[in-house]
């Protein structure tokens, strides 16, 4: 198991054929909930493991930021997927996805309060106790802000990372989206985050819709996000950067061009 390195792509069944044919690929991420904990692995993933490509399970439904304790069965599943894939680490979000018996169907933001920091740290500790490998935590993109934030984003994230010892999965598109929608400076946030803790970075596309920038993962990566990749790498280049695409898959040539542009922005070799 080698850590994530260079330029990677989110493995999805719809683009398994495309991913399988990327000659320089050393690293992919897979949605953990989509990988069975027993029985055969999805075909394309098994092939990538045979090529010694690093596969990082990325959880989306643990709800680490939920006020209630994280579901042990979900943690156990993530742990078993990490083991099956011989993953060097797993990743999840600083977010909650359900509350009061209702599924939100998406990642929702926490209030940046001491109470929420305590809740997420307790859940990360519960997960860490069962996981065979380190966890990297990803700050999300959100349109809503809670009315009573006590901490700013950098202090909130740094405190969670310090208290849990977790790694950081920095999503550059989320930094762009939040700054754009809040009228803040994305570089100011980069300057205050512990960039030496970044295990890898996410990069994705989005679109303007109704006056907001939406981190859709179904649109091309905008130039502003690639510029932010360059600014991040100028400060501290992450060991790996991963392109996330979750629908409206473009023709292979376009996806290849996006991977090449990401490699160029980060100064890593092309994987195509």
């Amino acid at each position: 198991m080698t850590g994530p390195s260079g330029v990677g792509i989110g493995w999805r069944p719809e683009i398994a054929g495309f991913v399988a044919e990327l000659p320089g690929l050393r690293f992919v991420e897979v949605v953990a909930e989509g990988v069975p904990s027993s029985g055969p692995l999805p075909h394309g993933l098994a092939q990538l493991r045979e090529r010694a490509v690093t596969v990082v399970p990325h959880g989306v439904r643990l709800s680490l930021g939920g006020a209630e304790p994280v579901d042990p069965a979900r943690v156990a599943h993530l742990a078993s997927v990490a083991q099956r894939l011989d993953a060097p680490l797993v990743s999840e979000h600083i977010a909650f996805v359900r509350a009061g018996g209702l599924e939100a169907g998406h990642l929702l933001p926490l209030p940046r309060s001491r109470e929420a920091v305590d809740a997420v740290c307790a859940n990360v500790a519960r997960a860490q106790a069962e996981l065979p490998v380190p966890i990297a935590l990803e700050p999300i993109a959100a349109l809503v802000d809670w009315p009573d934030d006590e901490l700013d984003e950098a202090d909130f994230l740094t405190e969670i990372l310090d208290r849990t010892g977790a790694l950081l999965l920095l999503d550059v598109a989320n930094v762009h989206a939040n700054a754009r929608n809040r009228g803040a400076d994305p570089l100011a946030l980069l300057d205050r985050l512990p960039l030496e803790r970044v295990a890898y970075a996410h990069v994705a596309g989005g679109a303007e819709h109704g006056g907001y920038y939406h981190d859709t993962h179904t649109d091309p990566v905008p130039a502003a996000v690639l510029e932010l990749v360059g600014a991040l790498c100028a400060r501290q280049r992450p060991p790996a950067l991963l392109l996330e695409r979750d629908g409206h898959y473009p023709p292979a040539a376009e996806l290849r061009a996006e991977l090449d542009a990401l490699a160029a922005a980060a100064g890593y070799p092309a994987v195509t």
């Binding site: 006020a67 209630e68 509350a99 009061g100 599924e103 929702l108 109470e115 929420a116 802000d145």
Partner: peptide
């Protein structure tokens, strides 16, 4: 508490619940 407030936000987003106080 956090649990109640999270539940109110989710209900407002997916179940037609009242918008929680203070949210834009």
């Amino acid at each position: 508490g956090l649990a109640e407030r999270q539940a109110a936000l989710v209900a407002a987003l997916v179940a037609g619940g009242e918008p929680p106080a203070g949210f834009a």
